[in-house]
Every structure is written in C-alpha cells, then in structure tokens.
Write a protein that binds this DNA or RNA. Structure first.
Lengths: 151, 151
DNA sequence: TCATCTCCGACTTGACTGGTCCTGTATTAG
DNA sequence: CTAATACAGGACCAGTCAAGTCGGAGATGA
C-alpha cells in the first residue's frame, strides 16, 4: 500500500516525456508512446495545465509543454497537482478537526513521517526523473541481456 | 494521497496502546478507548497476531500483547503486516513483470523514492510512536486550552 | 467556411475498502 | 458443569473513489 494513483503515475510519465522532448507533444502522442488510454492521459494533462505545471495549445498543431524548466518542478509538485496534498492519515487532511480521533495516540508521530515523505518527494525534480531513467535504462538493458539472454 | 488504509491506522493505534500498557488488552477494550468499531479492530488485531507482531490469549481474561519489545517493532512492520508490502506504483509490486510499462520511463526513479519512504517508516519504532505522543499530548492539551478555552 | 485536430468538462462503471454479521473454539470464573 | 468472556475467521453488504468513456467547444489550416 501507500500507493499513489495511476493518474499520478501517468502524470509523472508525461512530465518526464515532456522534459526530454524539446517542442510540444499532444495528449495522443504521449498516450500512445506508453500504452495509456488516450482520454485518460488527456484528462491528466488537463489537470496539470490547470495547476500551472503545463501550458496547452489548442488547434490542429497544438499540444502541451512544460510551463517552466524541468529542474524547477519536483515530483511532489506533480503528485499534489493530481492527487491533492499528500496525507498519510485520513485525519491529517483536516489537521485538527477529527472527532473520532480526539484521543488518537499516533497522530503527531505520523505527521512527522508525512513530512519525511514529502521532503523526499520534493527533493527529486522532473529533470532528474527524466535523466535518471536514461542512464538506468542503458544499464537495465545490459542486465536483461545478461540475465535472460534477450532484450 | 499516498494515504495508508484505515486498518493500518487502527493497527498503529493499537500497537502504541499496547506498548504503553504493561499487561494484555482485549480487542474490545482497545476499540472502545479510541472509538473504533469493535469488530473491525478485532480483525486488525487478528491479522497482527497471524503476522507474529502480537500474541493472543483466548478465554475470559484473554487479550493481546506485543510479541516482542516495542523498540524492536517498526512502523513499517505494522503497515506491511496489514496492507502488504509498500509499493508506490502499481508495477513496483511485480517488480519487473508489467507489460503495460515496458517502456515506462519513471520506474526506477520512483523505485528509489519508494526506498526512501520505506526507510523513513523503518526508522520509527512503535516505542517512539507511543512515547512521542505522550510528550506531544501534554503540549497539545495546553494549546487547546489556550486557543479554545476548553479541554 | 468547412474539415479536422485538440483540448475540455461531465458522466458511467467497477473495484476496493470500511464495516457488519454469524458461527465456532478456547479459557476461566463461579 | 455451565455460563460468560474473548479470540478466530469466513461470508457478506454498502458506500466511495479511481479508472475509464462520451459528447461538445474552441482553434487552426486549407
């Protein structure tokens, strides 16, 4: 558990894709590159646009591109744009209002853990996401060949 | 998002409770202390027992208690006992087998982030969970009085 | 102006979690 | 011995939310 939604997944994939691609890409183009349902990918991109992480261009040659440098966008930004604020517990969303857990005994320690997670997510940028992958993929391919004897 | 399930929440609450209580406590007793549905709490405790984190005693004066020292049980242990292994992405569960994401471009960076999260969860013990809270609660009570004028 | 491409917001569906119920078994108090 | 208490565990129901779909609006190019 502690899984992030598929939409957030798709969002990160798209952001990494756009970080590497110089121009703009359409929703369809990105979706087909990664076998993601086109409409769903479109929806994710729309939300990212509304949150200001992307800029969109309508019309025949339209598409999306990053609104700012990939080095200035963190994984936390993307996830929170899609899934809302990161909240480990149900009550941490309302911060204090949580009748049931008036006597809750783990709220504050958990809140501290949440801070750790957020800081981990904030430390990784979309740029790193994209570049990391390039480097790693080369290694992975080599390993796959070594282990399974195929690409 | 990135929220953990309510059952995991309850599990942590119960573990912290048992860490402070010297003897053993029944499911009903714990449930009522925190306004948690009794049956559901029982289920959570049962699972914790099956995973070896608790020992149970049947019969009239029965109940649950920690199977080992609270300092030797981490938050990660508890969460994984209830919700299964921590997996940030859908495909990280199967590790490599994930047809759809054959060309996934963010798998490895995300996997590294998962490691960070797990290590954060593994660094906090149930003992800390329980004690942290005691200290904080005193402060909280004082704050509540100051702000709302009531306990 | 027409055709086409793309973005966009509302809608439907299906899985999953939270929660309940019921039956069975072990232990102990009286 | 019996009744009360407490754990064990399977089956079941319901509300919620994510995943995925549908029809429309806006922009562009010919």
């Amino acid at each position: 558990m502690l899984r992030l939604s598929k939409k957030a997944d798709y969002a990160l994939i798209a952001m990494a894709h756009l970080a590497l691609k110089p121009g703009s890409s359409s929703a369809r183009e990105i979706a087909e590159s990664y076998d993601i349902p086109t409409e769903l990918m479109a929806k994710v991109l729309q939300r990212l646009t509304r949150r200001g992480l992307l800029t969109s261009q309508q019309g025949t040659r339209g598409g999306y591109q990053l609104s700012r440098a990939a080095t200035g966008i963190t994984v936390a930004d993307v996830i929170q744009a899609i899934d809302g604020p990161v909240s480990v517990t149900a009550c941490s969303a309302h911060a204090d209002r949580c009748g049931q857990f008036a006597k809750c005994n783990v709220r504050d320690p958990l809140w501290r853990i949440r801070e750790l997670i957020v800081s981990a997510l904030s430390r990784t940028t979309v740029s790193e996401l994209a570049n990391d992958n390039d480097a790693v993929n080369a290694v992975r391919s080599a390993q796959l060949v070594a282990v399974h004897g195929r690409v």
